[in-house]
């Protein structure tokens, strides 16, 4: 099974979307925006945040240096961080080294198209002060977004 889960975090440290696939055989399995993943989302955010700040401390020169992937013995995390503070995160296995173009495609053709360009969908998922700093619960529920994301990622799950 090549792809395990996909997450989007916004600039307020909130997880605004997550999709997890659990069975290789059934691509409709798994969870989407489930409450059980709150803990995991926070841990994942914390891990990426810490590693990004370590990376920035260790970087030299004025070239921006960003985390591309984080591997453990069991899975790999691919991150794509935009200048607007959005993080797209993919957890995969080891068969493919880089998913950066996959994440770029999701950002430019799916997120920007269906969320940013959609004037009726919230741009900023935190409504008020109390939902910034990681306490927000709003998620992307836009149907077109979900459909095109599934259509794009599902064929890659069993690579």
């Amino acid at each position: 099974m090549a792809i395990y889960s996909f997450w989007i975090f916004d600039k307020h440290c909130n997880c605004i979307f997550n999709r997890e696939w659990t069975l290789a055989a059934d691509t409709n399995s798994g969870t989407m925006n489930s409450k059980q993943n709150e803990e995991t989302a926070k841990l994942l955010y914390g891990m990426i945040y810490s590693l990004r700040s370590i990376t920035q401390k260790l970087s030299k020169g004025s070239n921006t240096n960003d985390v591309r992937s984080i591997s453990t013995g069991k899975y790999r995390v691919h991150t794509y961080c935009t200048a607007s503070g959005l993080w797209l995160v993919l957890l995969t296995d080891f068969k493919q080294q880089s998913y950066s173009q996959v994440l770029q495609y999701i950002y430019s053709h799916i997120y920007v198209k269906y969320v940013s360009h959609n004037l009726l969908s919230p741009q900023d998922f935190a409504d008020n002060e109390s939902e910034m700093r990681g306490q927000g619960i709003r998620k992307i529920t836009n149907k077109k977004f979900l459909q095109s994301l599934e259509a794009f990622l599902v064929p890659m799950i069993n690579n």
Binding site: L51, T55, S59, K60, N63, T64, N65, D66, V67, R68, S69, I70, S71, T72, G73, K74
Partner: peptide
């Protein structure tokens, strides 16, 4: 080291 962090790849 089976499930702990093993590798961190960045641009530099």
């Amino acid at each position: 080291n089976k499930s702990g962090l093993r590798q961190l790849s960045t641009d530099q």
